[in-house]
Design a protein around this nucleic acid. Structure first.
Lengths: 199, 199
DNA sequence: TGGCTGATGGTACAGGTGTTCGATCAGTTA
DNA sequence: TAACTGATCGAACACCTGTACCATCAGCCA
């Protein structure tokens, strides 16, 4: 959601403010923002805040400390009703008194990140073109795990992770495709989840 | 979430603080709390804040304004960093300054519900056993959409929706399975999303 | 009755904080 | 070249805010 109408600097400041509010629960002061970006004058920051407010991204309450509201909702209030398991066979759905399920809570760890999948190389693992995959950031993986790996020629790819004698086999889940063999590769993260929202 | 170890007054104060953080985006000052509860001395409020902190409900950062953190997570606040598209080929992942993606926002409509899939009848639509499917509650569907349908013998199933002359064909996405033909069926919802979190 | 806890009031102070005014400076546009 | 915009510095100011110290009072328990 990069905004062309924002300068890079404004984008940075906005992201910082949002990050503070989201992760710490309360926003930064003018001087905290300044410190973060090595802006030594409070007025330097004020200038950006005025710009962000004029462009409608934040709302401020004059003369109050830390009183920055994000115009964009924080989102994620409640989750969705979880009504049961659906099998090939009989099922009773109970909309009444159902539990709720919250996907952002499901992937709530902050060492995770999201990639969008392009291509069908993992189709037989039920990972389709356009899916969002959720990955846990780590540098090692077990044999057979699905990982995001960076190869020596600086390509990044989503594949099964198979270290072999003196090389790495990056195995697609697509029987019409061949495995990739590389002398070594860097694991960027391992697959922990998947989200799809187009049907 | 009434806590027996809290006095009524403390409970009230805590609720007020949480309400401010959740609905306004930033917490109250000591004096704002005092005004709300007609406590005329800042110290009266301090006393409650100390109590709440001692009991572990909030965390404070000394000498900072509005610096009240709720110990209990806000629930579904933030989303995850969205770092790019991963293709079979080259990709540059940018962890710096990345956008964020929030799945609970993605499925934020309140006419949606979630089911867990049992069985492999939709495997060729990349819907696997154990996946969560997100459905939009509606009574009609277009031809070829994936729906949750209830058949006359009161079974509920996830299938492709194919109305035909005088009957409904409920088509699995599994070439080893046969379609189900029923004289009529009730659409409970159409598929709009999918979430998987086991790998 | 004495001691304890929870809840407040009052006052005072130091440092945090938002804001303003004036000025510089690089890069872009007319 | 002149005008402008974005970004920033520096200093100053008034108010906001957290905090500390001291005191009161009702209710409960021993």
């Amino acid at each position: 959601m990069t905004r062309t109408e924002l300068t890079q600097r404004q984008q940075d400041v906005y992201t910082f403010i949002r990050d503070k509010i989201l992760n710490r629960g309360y926003g930064p002061t003018v001087r905290e923002i300044g410190e973060q970006f090595s802006i030594k004058s409070p007025n330097g920051v004020m200038c950006h805040l005025r710009a962000l407010e004029k462009k409608g991204l934040i709302t401020r309450c004059p003369n109050k400390s830390r009183a920055i509201e994000l115009t964009e909702g924080l989102g994620g209030t409640g989750g969705l009703p979880y009504v049961g398991v659906i099998a090939a066979g009989a099922t009773t759905l109970s909309f009444e008194q159902s539990d709720r399920i919250d996907f952002s809570e499901m992937f709530a760890r902050d060492d995770m990140f999201v990639l969008r999948v392009a291509g069908d190389s993992m189709i037989e693992a039920q990972i389709a073109d356009g899916d969002y995959v959720v990955l846990k950031q780590q540098k090692t993986a077990h044999v057979g795990q699905i990982v995001v790996a960076r190869t020596p020629d600086d390509e990044t790819t989503l594949k099964y992770w198979h270290p072999e004698n003196g090389r790495i086999r990056l195995q697609p889940a697509n029987s019409s495709m061949q495995p990739i063999y590389v002398p070594h590769a860097e694991v960027l993260g391992v697959l922990v989840g998947l989200v799809r929202n187009r049907f």
